[in-house]
Design a protein around this nucleic acid. Structure first.
Lengths: 245, 245
DNA sequence: ACAAAAGTGTTAGATCTACACCCATGC
DNA sequence: GCATGGGTGTAGATCTAACACTTTTGT
């Protein structure tokens, strides 16, 4: 059997979504279903990160983007290679071994985990294959394989990077309010921020651009919209010489 | 042929070493030699990162540590998984394809890059196999495969993390002087620091512990020694709530 | 008019930057 | 006694933390 897949390498996508109304950070998971077909006499029905094996002719980044496109129909979602999981015993539960066998995949399989960041409402889940669902990061269902570990480490990584990496802006719409930005930080970091101090600080940053628009209708008082300018950020951070240990 | 190696997964070690006397950051590389044996009619003689394929029964971390132990005889060197390189065309030069063939390895091979940090003089290179040599990071020789790219990205990663990660202390001996620490930062970051301001800042950090010893003999005036306390650092950084974008 | 979220100012303490000379020792 | 690297202090500017009320709209 000549497959175009590499049998022992997969990508898994840890898809973070932020919902500013609910102030919740979520993960996008899909159902894993294996209905009792012989020779498997166990029903498997839990959740997993979306992922798939890498094709021989594509890069890891291409594989991750392909998997996300298949899931969501979207291209160009922000992503970052995060870690590779390659423990020889990472797949060891009976359910999981059965599943791998049912898919004709190696049990010693390495997976390259990618973190994806997107506003929750940027993905329309209607009518998508695999039945994807959002789960709050602090209330995840039982997950397949070592996906709970992968998700946990990805969240820790995000939490750590949030303090000094602008990747978090990817979780907001292009145009956002300062309250949304503050809610996002509070949600990721897990502590509250003083809104007066937060706003004063943010407003000094040249890469947070005040737009001419306001958002009306959604709340009582119209709120000023802002956007994030990556180019200005990059220029400023190049001249940053502050050691912060 | 049943091998205990996974044919398409390797680890590569980007070994950083700091020399405080020379104020140089270096990489430890080994020679790649393929002498004209039939059917190969080309001499290969350049340098590469130390690396090897992963065994079926070991984790990636174990593989990286094993490779370092084989090279240096040392255990427990600080290491960090850094990135996986899996481009299908990452090995494409005629020399490199010949080399892979001579080693019975897949040309579509993924390598997991690990960064190692150690003081240069902690490794004794005398009589070691593979003829390892230190090269200043800004003056690297011609390297095999995509190892120049891997080394370059690892250096960028170190430069970026140095600003807020205490991993840099791994490049110094257990006991170090503040001038060594300052030289280290200046070398990695590529700009100069004001020694009065640097010292004042460092001395406020509880995890930089002033020892009762001084180093004598090496310079004219004896110099105060310090050590880094990871536990205190972790405790302090957990309560750090400063967003620094 | 009132409910709801948006938005704003001050002060005290801490930290950052810029800048130039004295100190302890080996030779 | 002098050369060498080790080590220090001050003042002005900026940033941080802690604190509560006013503004603008939709209903």
């Amino acid at each position: 059997m000549t497959s175009k897949l590499i049998p022992n390498i997969s990508v898994d996508c840890v898809v973070f979504g932020f919902n500013p109304e609910e102030k919740l950070l979520k993960l996008l998971l899909i159902e894993r279903k294996l209905e009792a077909l012989e020779p498997y006499d166990i029903n498997i029905n839990d959740f997993k990160l979306t992922g798939f094996h890498v094709e021989k002719s594509e890069t890891l980044e291409e594989a991750a983007s392909r998997v996300m496109r298949d899931l969501t129909g979207l291209e160009n979602i922000y992503k970052k290679q995060f870690k590779i999981f390659g423990d020889p015993n990472r797949i060891n539960k009976p359910h999981d071994l059965l599943w791998m066998k049912s898919q004709n995949l190696d049990a010693r399989s390495l997976t390259v985990a990618f973190s994806f960041l997107i506003p929750e409402n940027a993905i329309n889940l209607e009518g998508k294959m695999f039945n994807p669902k959002w789960f709050p990061i602090n209330n995840l269902p039982k997950m397949a394989f070592d996906h709970d570990q992968i998700a946990g480490e990805a969240y820790l990584d995000l939490k750590k990077k949030a303090l000094h990496d602008p990747m978090v802006f990817e979780l907001l719409a292009e145009k956002f309010t300062l309250n949304e930005l503050q809610d996002l930080y509070e949600t990721i970091l897990g502590f509250e921020l003083d809104s007066r101090n937060f706003r004063r600080k943010v407003l000094t940053k040249k890469y947070i651009v005040k737009l001419t628009e306001k958002r009306v209708g959604q709340t009582k008082k119209p709120s000023q919209l802002f956007s994030f300018d990556q180019k200005i950020f990059d220029a400023i951070s190049e001249e940053n010489r502050l050691i912060n240990i």
